[in-house]
Simulated assay, not measured.
Amino acid sequence: MSLQQHLLGPEGRQALTRLVQQQPLLAFDFDGTLAPIVMHPDTARTPPSMVPLLTTLARRLPLVILTGRQVEDVQQRLGFTPTHIVGNHGAEDLIEGPDARVVETLAPFRTRVEDRRTRLSTAGVFIEDKGASIAIHYRLSPDPVAARAVIDELLTELPPEVLIEPGKQVVNVLAAGAPDKGDAMHRLMARYGCRSGFYAGDDTNDEPVFERAERDWVTVRVGPRLDNSHARYYLQEQAEMAQVLQHLVDTLGA
């Protein structure tokens, strides 16, 4: 695993310029990547200053969103129309809908949540059922340690077909064998006939894309350099994404 380079440094900008010449697929996570992280997920939106840049890019290149949110949820938060959206960490497609097997696999866990609904709510834990995945949020809890204790009890002795994936003050509950973002990225590359790609994300569920990226892709993790990530580049913070979009637009214009 090589040392990550800052995407807005000379090497990163050169890589973006070369990539645009290959007519790549542009793919973005939403929360923490296009939109800043916020205290409550219902308030997340793409910053207005970025919307014209994304609109321009989507007119020129295939531009897709790969998000942990449901497709319908993220659509109203974008401010522009992408070429394609894949939700639920790869398990829900804009065209084909959520994976029915995955939704059914999580049914027993939903019962488990309902049995503990009062305790979870008292601890400040918010359950977001997205059909093909379930997110357990504790960002708003007044006592995160107590909230994690309640969550840990909820997650004990899960059947092998149910997996957990920690994130930023959230725990995602997924079905084993469900399509992930890496699967979705390669599927969309084939759908839109692209041989090269760009992907930006900020969390652990973006690593399948980073890990399986071809050598000529540009992959970027949003957040301070993390050398155990498979992303080739990093951005210090989400606000730097606007400069990346501007560079892409300028390169296309040239």
Rank of each mutant, 00 (worst) to 15 (best):
G131H: 00
D73A: 13
A15R: 14
H230P: 10
E96M: 05
Q243R: 05
Y192Q: 10
G12E: 07
R117G: 00
F30M: 07
Q76K: 13
G223K: 13
Q169L: 13
R45A: 13
D31R: 04
Q4A: 15
G9E: 11
L63Y: 04
P108H: 00
V71R: 09
P41R: 11
L78Q: 04
F80G: 02
Q5G: 11
A239Q: 12
G90E: 11
I37R: 00
Q23G: 07
H247E: 12
D183H: 11
E214C: 01
V20M: 15
G197V: 01
V220Y: 08
L16V: 14
V220D: 06
V125F: 14
D250S: 10
R101E: 14
A35E: 04
P47A: 12
L94K: 01
G253I: 08
P47K: 11
T46S: 05
M189W: 00
A175L: 13
G124P: 07
F210Y: 06
A107V: 05
T17W: 08
L25N: 04
L120T: 02
G79V: 15
Y234V: 07
L120W: 02
V244Y: 05
L154E: 04
V170M: 01
F210M: 07
P47Y: 13
D143K: 02
H89G: 01
R187E: 10
H230C: 15
V71D: 06
D99P: 05
P24N: 01
A242P: 05
K168G: 07
H84E: 07
D42A: 15
Q23T: 14
L26T: 07
S196D: 11
A147I: 14
E165T: 14
Q4G: 14
I85V: 15
A100C: 08
